[in-house]
Every structure is written in structure tokens, then in C-alpha cells.
Amino acid sequence: QIFVKTLTGKTITLEVEPSDTIENVKAKIQDKEGIPPDQQRLIFAGKQLEDGRTLSDYNIQKESTLHLVL
């Protein structure tokens, strides 16, 4: 699982696999929060994550925290 922290300070927990794409993660966030993926920007280690890449591409491991910017 990974954590996604929103600007409001809320933390969302997501069940993911390293092979999941960023697009996939955004879809999971939409399921939980109702935020359309095209409004979501995910930041990890100061980098904006691209939809077509996977979590493992960015070396995002379990218990990692991503930041969600709208």
C-alpha cells in the first residue's frame, strides 16, 4: 500500500502493486475521493509523475507517500 497526502492534509491509503501505472493510481484516487484523474497531479520526491509510467519506474515502494496537487 502507499499513502497519498492531499493539500488539505488528508491522507488516503491505496492498495497498489509496483506494476501499477500512475494512471491506474489516479483512477483509484477517483474511486475513493471522486476527483477526476485529469485534475490530479501526483508528486513524489519533488517530481511530477507521468501517467504512462509505473510506480516501480519511480522507485515508489510500499509505505511511500505521494503528494496530490489539484
Rank of each mutant, 00 (worst) to 15 (best):
G52E: 10
Y58L: 05
F44H: 06
T13C: 11
K47N: 11
R53P: 04
Y58K: 01
H67R: 08
S19H: 12
I2P: 00
E33F: 11
D20T: 09
T8L: 10
Q1C: 13
P18D: 09
G46N: 07
Q40C: 08
I22V: 09
Q39M: 11
E15L: 12
H67I: 13
R41I: 14
V25L: 12
T11W: 08
I43M: 14
E50T: 06
S19P: 03
L66K: 01
V25H: 00
L7W: 15
I35R: 03
K26Q: 02
L7K: 10
L14F: 05
K62E: 12
K10D: 08
V16P: 02
I43Q: 07
L7G: 14
D38A: 15
P37S: 12
G52W: 12
A27D: 08
A45P: 01
I2T: 02
L42I: 07
F44D: 01
D57S: 14
K28S: 04
D38S: 13
T11D: 04
L70E: 08
D38P: 08
P37I: 14
K28F: 06
S64P: 03
T21H: 04
K26L: 04
E33C: 15
E63P: 03
T11V: 14
D57W: 12
L70K: 07
T21Y: 08
P37D: 04
F44R: 03
I29G: 00
I2N: 01
P37E: 07
I35Q: 03
K10C: 13
L55K: 00
K47L: 13
A27C: 13
Q39P: 02
S64N: 08
E23D: 08
E33A: 10
L70S: 10
T11S: 07
E15C: 15
K10L: 10
L42S: 00
V16A: 08
V16Q: 02
I60F: 03
V69H: 12
I43A: 06
E15V: 12
T13Y: 08
E63I: 04
T8Q: 11
V16I: 10
G34Q: 06
I43F: 15
L49Y: 01
L68E: 01
Q40I: 12
L68K: 00
E23Q: 12
I43R: 06
R41V: 15
D57Y: 14
T6G: 06
T13R: 07
H67C: 15
V69W: 10
I29K: 00
G52F: 12
Q30D: 05
E15R: 07
G46I: 02
K47A: 09
Y58H: 03
V4A: 03
A45C: 14
S56H: 11
Q48W: 12
I60N: 01
Q30Y: 15
T21R: 08
E63M: 11
K32G: 04
G34Y: 04
D57L: 03
I12K: 01
P37F: 14
I12L: 11
N24R: 13
L66H: 01
H67Y: 15
A45R: 13
R53Q: 09
